[in-house]
Design a protein around this nucleic acid. Structure first.
Length: 709
RNA sequence: GGGCAAUUAGCUCAGUUGGUUAGAGCGUUGCAUUCACAUUGCAAAGGUCACUGGUUCGAGUCCAGUAUUGCCCACCA
C-alpha cells in the first residue's frame, strides 16, 4: 500500500508495459486457464513510413479495448501487429533522401536502391510500432509481420500463381492511370481529385463537327468522333468520316451510349490512348490507339512537330495553331476535377501500357454475398451501401506497378522473343508464370529468361494480411479473426479485398464484424493533415499527460460520428485519473488489511445497498455496451458512477459510517470491493493506472491484465 | 449528378424503442473546504433542441419539405 502523492504516468507507464511484455500475456499461447475460445484482431497495417497520428490512436485504442476486455473474459486473445511495405510511399521517402545526397535511383540502380530501402526500413521502420507500445497496445509483438518478409513474400507469389493458373489474372495492353513522376501505373483507388480552373476549348473539325475539350493536345491522338446514338441532331453523321485538324488524319464518326447529349456540343473527340472512357469507347468500336504522350508526360513522335514537348507546351502551341486556322470557335472558363497521384500529388496522365489485371467480378460477388448473408456485419450498417456500390460497379484491378520497391512479379520473359516495346503481347507466347526461376526457356530453349521488372500493387499483398506470412501452425489456429476495426476510407481499398481473399484462400470470411469508427478532425471540422499543418500530434499528449489520458480523451469523444477534436477532453481525462488515484489512496489507507472479498457482502445501510446495486447495474451495462461496440458510452457511464456515485456519495458517507463500529467492517469491505471492480472495468480503457493500483495498491499477485472481468 | 452524415447550453458532444422540470465534459458565477483529491466539494446561471408543415392525447425523438455545413462516390470529355 504505497499509493502516495499524485499520479505521475512517467513513473509508471514504461515499467508497467515492460511487466506486461515480460509476462508474455500478449501471446495467447502463454495465457493461463482453459480458454477454449479465440478472440482475434488483425491490426490495420500502418505504413512502415508512418508515425502515430490521431487516426492510429483512436483505431488502436479501440482495438486494445476489445482485446483487453476479451482477455479478461477468458478468451484466447491474439492481436496481430505488423507494418505494410507501402510500395510507392516508401520508395518516395527514400527517393527524397537520395535527392538530398544529389543522386537519383536510376544512378544507383535497382538492386542498390532496394538495399537502401531495406536500410531505411531497418532504421525507421519500427517507429510506428514502438509508438503503439507507448499507447499501451497489447498486441502480440512476437508475431509482428512485415509485408515484405520472406515468408510473406512467398505467400504473395503463391497467390499470384494461383490467380494466374485459375485464369483470373491476365496481361493486357490498356490505357491506365499513370503517374509521370513516380513512373508507374496506379489503380483508381490510388487517385485523388483536385479541383482545377481550366478552359473548355471548342474545336471545329468540320462545319458540322465541333467538339468541346479540356485537353486539346490529345487531339493528335484522336481516332474517332463519338455521338450518342439517340441524338437526332447527329444521327446522319454516324458512319461518315472527318479530318482531324493539324494531324490531318481521317477518322470515323461513331455512336456510343456513353456520350452525354447535353454536354458541350454533344459531340466528343475520342482519344483511346489518353482517356479511360475513350479507351472503352475504342474497344467497343474497334478503334485504333495512337499514343501521343509518353510515360514521362512528353509528346511522342506520333505528335509530329510537337515531339518532345511537355503536354502543357504542346497545348499552347496547338491552341495558337487552331486560332490561326480559324478552327477554334469558342473558349469557356471551366472548373473540373483532375486526378492526381495520392502520394506525390502529380497530375495523372492516362497512357496505354502493358499491365497485369485481376478479374474482379467473381471476387466482388463473393464479397457482396459475405455481407448480404450476414456472415460479416458492418457497423454502423450505413456503410454497407458504399461497399455494395463499389463492388457492384467494380472493374478489373490493375495490380502491376512500375516501381522498384515491392513484390516482384513471378513472371519470366524469354529474352529472345521480346516484343517491341509498347506493343507487348497479351498472349502467353513469350512469358511464363512460376515462382522459381526456370532452368530453360520453353520458347527459345537457349536464354536464361528475365524476370518481369514490375512489382505488385501494395494492396495486393495487404489483402492477404489475415493469413499471409504466418507460421503454418498460426495459419491453422488463428484464422478466422473476429473483428476488424478501421476508418471508413479503406473499406473498399482494403477491407473488401481481405474479405474475398479470405474466402478464396481460406474458404471462410476473415472476420465477423467490421467496425467503422469516426474520423478525427480539427475543431473547425477540417481534415487533420500533416502537409496542411492541421494535424495534432498524439505523442505530445502521451508525453505530457501519459497514454491513459490520451486514450481517455480519444474514447470520450468517439461516439461513432466524426470527431471535432476537443482539447478539453484531455483535461477531463487528467482530472479523472487524479480522481481514480485519490479515491484508491483513500480506500487503501482506510482499511487495515487486505480484505477477502470472496464472500458476499451484506449491506447494512441504504447507501450500502445503493452503491452495490449501482455497481451491479453498471457492470451489466458496461459489459453489454462493449459487446455492441459502444465504448464511449461505457466509459461515460463508468466515469459517472465512479466519480459521483462512488466518490461524491459513498465515500463521503463511508467516512461517517466507519466511525460506527457496527457499520465499519461492511463499509470497508464495500469500499474495497467497489474500488476493485471499478479498476477491472476501467482497465481496458486506461490500462496503466489501473494496473499500477492493482499491483501496488491492491497488492495482487496476478496482474489485472488477466484478471477475470 | 448521386449517396451519406450533421444541425441540441459559450465550446465539443450524449439523448436507446416518442411520455413527467432536455443531460455530460470543458468554460463561467457564488459559496465552502487544507478532513483522499484546489486536478476538490456544494450550488447557480445558461437551450424557442436549424427552419416550415404534418402524424399524435403528447415529438429533440416519427413523416414530408427547406436551409446550412461536412464527407464519399461518379466516365459529363
Amino acid at each position: 500500500m504505497k499509493i502516495e502523492g499524485a499520479y505521475d504516468p512517467k513513473l509508471h507507464e514504461e515499467q508497467i508495459y515492460k511487466g506486461w511484455m515480460d509476462s508474455g500475456y500478449f501471446n495467447p499461447d502463454n495465457l493461463p486457464g482453459p480458454r477454449s475460445e479465440n478472440y482475434i484482431v488483425y491490426m490495420p497495417l500502418p505504413n512502415v513510413t508512418g508515425s502515430l497520428h490521431m487516426g492510429h490512436t483512436l483505431d488502436n485504442t479501440l482495438q486494445d479495448i476489445v482485446i483487453r476486455y476479451h482477455r479478461m473474459r477468458g478468451y484466447k486473445t491474439l492481436w496481430f501487429p505488423g507494418t505494410d511495405h507501402a510500395g510507392i510511399a516508401t520508395q518516395y521517402v527514400v527517393e527524397k533522401q537520395l535527392k538530398k545526397e544529389g543522386i537519383n535511383r536510376f544512378e544507383l540502380g535497382r538492386e542498390k536502391f532496394i538495399e537502401r530501402v531495406w536500410e531505411w526500413k531497418k532504421e525507421y521502420g519500427g517507429i510506428i510500432l514502438s509508438q503503439l507500445q507507448k499507447l499501451g497496445c497489447s498486441a502480440d509483438w512476437s508475431r509482428t509481420r512485415f509485408t515484405m518478409d520472406p515468408d510473406y513474400a512467398r505467400d504473395v507469389q503463391d497467390v499470384f500463381v494461383h490467380y494466374f493458373e485459375k485464369g483470373l489474372l491476365y496481361r493486357g495492353f490498356r490505357t491506365v492511370n499513370w503517374c509521370t513522376r513516380c513512373g508507374t501505373s496506379l489503380s483508381e483507388l490510388e487517385l485523388e481529385y483536385k479541383e482545377e480552373e481550366t478552359k473548355l476549348w471548342y474545336i471545329k473539325y468540320s462545319d458540322e463537327i465541333i467538339v468541346a475539350t479540356t485537353r486539346p493536345e490529345t487531339m493528335l491522338g484522336d481516332t474517332a468522333i463519338a455521338v450518342n446514338p439517340n441524338d437526332e441532331r447527329f444521327k446522319k453523321l454516324i458512319g461518315k468520316t472527318v479530318v482531324v485538324p493539324i494531324a490531318n488524319r481521317e477518322i470515323p464518326i461513331v455512336a456510343d451510349e456513353m456520350i452525354d447529349k447535353e454536354f458541350g456540343t454533344g459531340m466528343v473527340k475520342v482519344t483511346p490512348a489518353h482517356d479511360g472512357v475513350d479507351f472503352e469507347i475504342g474497344e467497343r468500336n474497334k478503334l485504333p490507339m495512337i499514343q501521343v504522350i509518353d510515360a514521362r508526360g512528353r509528346m511522342t513522335s506520333e505528335a509530329g512537330i510537337y515531339e518532345g514537348k511537355k503536354t502543357s507546351e504542346a497545348r499552347e502551341e496547338i491552341i495558337r495553331k487552331l486560332e490561326e486556322e480559324n478552327k477554334l470557335v469558342k473558349v469557356e472558363p471551366y472548373k473540373h476535377n483532375v486526378a492526381v497521384c495520392y502520394r506525390c500529388n502529380s497530375v495523372i496522365e492516362p497512357i496505354p501500357s502493358a499491365q497485369w489485371f485481376l478479374k474482379m467480378r467473381g471476387f466482388a460477388d463473393s464479397a457482396i454475398t459475405a455481407v448480404k448473408s450476414g456472415n460479416i456485419k458492418i457497423h454502423p450498417e450505413r456503410f454497407e451501401k458504399p461497399y455494395f456500390d463499389w463492388l457492384s460497379n467494380i472493374r478489373d484491378w490493375t495490380v502491376s506497378r512500375q516501381i522498384w520497391w515491392g513484390h516482384r512479379l513471378p513472371v519470366w520473359f524469354c529474352k529472345n522473343s521480346l516484343i517491341e516495346e509498347g506493343k507487348e503481347s497479351t498472349e502467353k507466347d513469350n512469358f511464363i508464370v512460376t515462382k522459381e526461376k526456370p532452368h530453360t526457356c520453353p520458347f527459345c530453349k537457349t536464354c536464361d529468361m528475365e524476370q518481369s521488372s514490375d512489382v505488385l500493387d501494395t494492396w495486393f499483398s495487404s489483402a492477404l494480411w489475415p493469413f499471409a506470412g504466418m507460421s503454418d501452425e498460426d495459419k491453422k489456429k488463428y484464422y478466422p479473426g473476429n473483428i476488424l476495426i478501421t476508418a471508413r476510407d479503406i473499406l473498399n481499398l482494403w477491407v473488401a479485398r481481405m474479405i474475398y481473399s479470405g474466402i478464396e484462400f481460406k474458404k471462410e470470411v476473415p472476420f465477423k464484424d467490421v467496425l467503422i469508427h469516426g474520423t478525427i478532425m480539427t475543431k473547425d471540422g477540417k481534415r487533420m493533415s500533416k502537409s496542411l499543418g492541421t494535424g495534432i500530434d498524439p505523442l505530445q499528449y502521451i508525453e505530457q499527460y501519459g497514454a491513459d489520458v490520451t486514450r481517455f480523451a480519444v474514447i470520450w469523444q468517439a461516439t461513432g460520428q466524426d470527431i471535432r477534436w476537443d482539447e478539453t477532453a484531455v483535461i477531463g481525462g487528467k482530472k479523472f485519473l487524479n480522481k481514480i488515484w485519490n479515491a484508491a489512496k483513500f480506500v487503501l489507507s482506510n482499511i487495515q488489511s487486505m480484505i477477502d472479498d470472496s464472500e458476499k457482502i451484506e449491506p447494512v445501510t441504504e447507501v450500502d445497498k445503493k452503491i452495490l446495486d449501482g455497481l451491479a447495474n453498471l457492470k451489466q451495462s458496461v459489459t453489454a455496451d462493449i459487446e455492441i461496440f459502444e465504448f464511449s458510452k461505457a466509459l461515460h457511464d463508468i466515469y459517472e458512477f465512479f466519480w459521483h456515485s462512488f466518490c461524491d456519495e459513498y465515500i463521503e458517507v463511508a467516512k461517517i459510517q466507519m466511525q460506527d463500529e457496527k457499520k465499519k467492517e461492511t463499509t470497508q469491505k464495500i469500499l474495497f470491493y467497489v474500488l476493485k471492480e471499478s479498476l477491472i472495468m476501467l482497465h481496458p480503457f486506461v490500462p496503466f493506472i489501473t494496473e499500477v493500483l492493482w499491483k501496488e495498491g491492491i497488492g495482487s499477485k496476478t496482474p489485472l491484465i488477466i484478471h477475470q472481468w
